[in-house]
Computed example of a mutant assay.
Amino acid sequence: MTKAERTRETRVRILSAACEVIAEVGFEKIRMRMVAERAGVSTALLHYHFDTREKLFAEAMTHSFAQTGTELEKDAGSVPAAVILARILRALLPTDPELRQDWRLWQELWVRALRDETAQRLAVDLYDQLHDWVTGALRRGVDSGEFAPCDVDATSTLLLALCDGYGIRLMLADPRVGLDTAQASIWGTVARTLGVAPEFPAV
């Protein structure tokens, strides 16, 4: 392994550890030492890569986001647009332990963004990327004839808002909202616009 590869591997290990610790204790309680211990590196090495908690948090969010994007792009060229869109929507909800961790990070970002301009810019930038994922699936479906022509930007904004709303209820373990209910409601809301069956596709 080259020095550059070792450096990248160390950064990834640190960022993964940071995601875990921030999700567990929250940004306000996190200490760099806690992340270093979880990553199995010295505090000095951690500070070499990330000199402040704020920079570590921002890169941890971006790292977590990129991991989700990588999973969504697998075999994307060989499945119907409806399945791609359903996968994206499912990934935008806290449907498994890893995505619940991502959701905790998002909630930390939302709180910070209310008071910190840098966090606000990061949140808006990440939402832009989410918007691109959803509009990409919508445009693919429209172009292939799988979806009826629609305002893809407005539809994407609606889908993201629905995912945020239902996701919060799922994170709260609200007994009125289960995963199946959330997925069915989100899909059913846009199914008529897209000209597809109202049932959430098997993914």
Rank of each mutant, 00 (worst) to 15 (best):
S64R: 04
T52Q: 11
V190Y: 02
R87D: 05
I84Q: 08
R90C: 11
R31K: 13
M171V: 06
E117F: 09
M1Y: 01
A119V: 05
A197G: 07
E37I: 00
L89W: 01
I30M: 15
R31S: 12
G145T: 10
A202G: 02
G141M: 05
E59H: 06
G26P: 03
A36H: 05
F57A: 14
G165F: 04
P201M: 14
S42L: 14
G165R: 09
T10F: 04
E59C: 05
D51K: 08
P149F: 03
K74Q: 11
L159Y: 05
D143E: 11
R139C: 07
T189R: 06
Q129G: 12
R87K: 13
F50K: 00
V190M: 05
L159T: 03
L85G: 07
L15K: 00
Q129M: 12
E28F: 02
F147K: 10
S185I: 07
L126V: 10
L56K: 02
I168K: 06
A197V: 08
L56P: 03
W133Y: 10
M61D: 03
V203R: 03
S78H: 12
R176L: 14
A44D: 12
D180N: 14
M32L: 13
E9L: 12
A81S: 12
A113I: 09
L126K: 06
I88S: 04
L170F: 08
V152E: 02
T7R: 02
R11N: 10
L160I: 15
G69M: 06
P94S: 08
R11P: 06
G136C: 10
V152Y: 03
P94R: 08
A202M: 07
D143T: 10
V35D: 09
G69K: 01
G195D: 07
R100L: 11
V83D: 01
V177T: 11
G69C: 07
L122G: 02
V25M: 10
L162V: 00
A81W: 01
F200M: 07
M1I: 10
L172I: 03
C150R: 02
T68L: 13
D125V: 08
A66P: 01
P97C: 13
A148F: 01
T52P: 06
S78D: 13
T189D: 02
L138I: 11
V111Y: 04
G77Q: 08
A18E: 02
R121E: 14
A148T: 12
T193H: 09
L159K: 09
R140D: 00
G167S: 12
D75Q: 14
V35R: 07
E28V: 12
R100Q: 15
Q120E: 12
Q67M: 14
R121L: 15
S16R: 07
R33N: 12
L89F: 06
L138T: 07
A39T: 00
S16L: 10
P198T: 15
A119S: 13
L158K: 11
L130T: 09
F200G: 05
V111C: 03
L105T: 01
V196M: 08
S144I: 09
W110E: 13
V25L: 08
E54Y: 04
L114A: 13
E37P: 04
T95W: 06
K74R: 14
D174I: 04
R140M: 11
L130P: 00
E5L: 14
P175L: 10
G195H: 03
T118I: 12
R6M: 15
W187A: 06
E20M: 08
L109K: 01
L85W: 07
L109C: 09
S144Y: 03
A123P: 01
Y48E: 14
